[in-house]
Design a protein around this nucleic acid. Structure first.
Lengths: 161, 161
DNA sequence: TTAGGTGCAAAGAGTTTGCTCGTAT
DNA sequence: ATACGAGCAAACTCTTTGCACCTAA
C-alpha cells in the first residue's frame, strides 16, 4: 500500500522510483528520529539495491519539499522525522540517548515576544532539553559541559529509538 | 599582561606554553562566538608558529576544564565562548548569521518543570532563536525549513562577529 | 630530566558530487 | 524519447591522531 510520504511525493509531482518508494515507506513507518545510516539500514533490509548516496539525496530532497524535518541532537549526525508531526520539542536522556517528545504551545508566544524585544521577527527556534532520570548514575557530570553540546550519548547509533 | 583564561589555566595546573598563552588571550579578548578557523586566524596574527591542530587540541582541553563552552549554531562547525559568561541564550539572524545574546532567567524554572513532568531532572538545555529583521529580504523562506537546522548563514566565516 | 605539548601530514566521520548508466513518465 | 534518478567512487569539510621533535616545570 501507498505510504503517507509516498503520497506527498506524488502530490508534488516527484518521480517515484523503487528506491524512493522504499525510503518513503521507511520514513512513514519510523516512530523515532533515525539518522541517515539507520535509514539506510532499514531501507536496505527491504530492498538491497539502495545506496547510501540515494538516501542522502532523498532526505535532502524531502527536507527541501518540507516533508521531512532535519534535527540536530548533537553527536555530529543529522536526524530526521516527518515534519507534519505537530510542533513539538525534544528531551534527550543524556544517559541513554533516548529522545522524548513534548509539546508546549505557550512557548511560541513567549519566544516571539523575546525576539520582538530584540528587534526581530521570530523565524523558528529550537528548544532541546537534556535530562536524566532521577537515580541514574551521575556519569561524567562535568560542570562545564555546554548546554549546547552535552556529553555524547553512549552510542550515536543507539540514540533516538 | 596575564589574560583571564591564562589565569584559569594556571590555577588548574596546566602547562603554559607560548601557543597556549596566545590562544588564551585570543579567547579572553573575544566578545563573539568564533569557530576554530577564526580562532586560528586571530592566534596566527599574534604568533605565526601556531598550528590549527593546536587550536583544536586547546579548545578541547579548555572545554573539558569547563573554561570554554562549545556551541552549535548549525552550519556544521563548533563555536566557542568563555563559559563564565552568565547564563544566556542566542538569537541568530538568519540573513546575516549574526548572533545576539539574551537572557531569560524565567525559562530555567519552566523547563525544569517540563522535564519533571516527563520524569527527568533537567541537566541542561539549549534554546536558540532564529529571526529576521523586519524588512529584510525574505531570502529562501522554504516553508519546511527545520527549526533545528535553519538555512545556512551567508558565509560560515562571516557569522558570529 | 621528563611528562606533556606541538607541527605536520595522514586518517576519520559525515556528507556531497561527477560521471555514466538506468528508468519513470 | 528524454528528463531525471541511482550507483559508485572520489572529493569535501570539519576534526582527530600518530609520530618525531621540543619545552615548561
Amino acid at each position: 500500500m501507498e505510504s503517507r510520504i509516498e503520497r506527498l511525493c506524488i502530490e508534488r509531482g516527484l518521480k517515484m522510483t523503487g528506491q524512493r518508494r522504499v525510503i518513503a515507506r521507511v520514513l512513514s513507518d519510523a516512530a523515532d528520529h533515525p539518522d541517515v545510516e539507520e535509514l539506510y539500514r532499514r531501507a536496505s533490509a527491504l530492498d538491497r539495491r539502495i545506496s547510501i548516496a540515494t538516501v542522502y539525496r532523498t532526505v535532502r530532497l524531502l527536507e527541501e519539499q518540507g516533508i521531512l524535518a532535519r534535527r540536530d541532537f548533537g553527536g555530529g549526525r543529522a536526524r530526521y522525522e516527518p515534519s507534519e508531526h505537530g510542533h513539538h520539542h525534544h528531551l534527550i536522556d543524556v544517559d541513554t540517548g533516548r529522545v522524548i517528545e513534548f509539546e508546549d504551545p505557550e512557548h511560541e508566544r513567549v519566544l516571539a515576544a523575546i525576539a520582538a524585544r530584540l528587534g526581530f521577527d521570530l523565524v523558528s527556534y529550537r528548544l532541546t532539553l537534556f535530562g536524566r532520570r532521577p537515580g541514574a548514575r551521575t556519569a561524567a557530570a562535568r560542570p562545564g559541559t555546554s548546554a549546547d553540546r552535552p556529553a555524547r550519548p553512549p552510542s550515536a547509533a543507539e540514540a533516538g529509538r
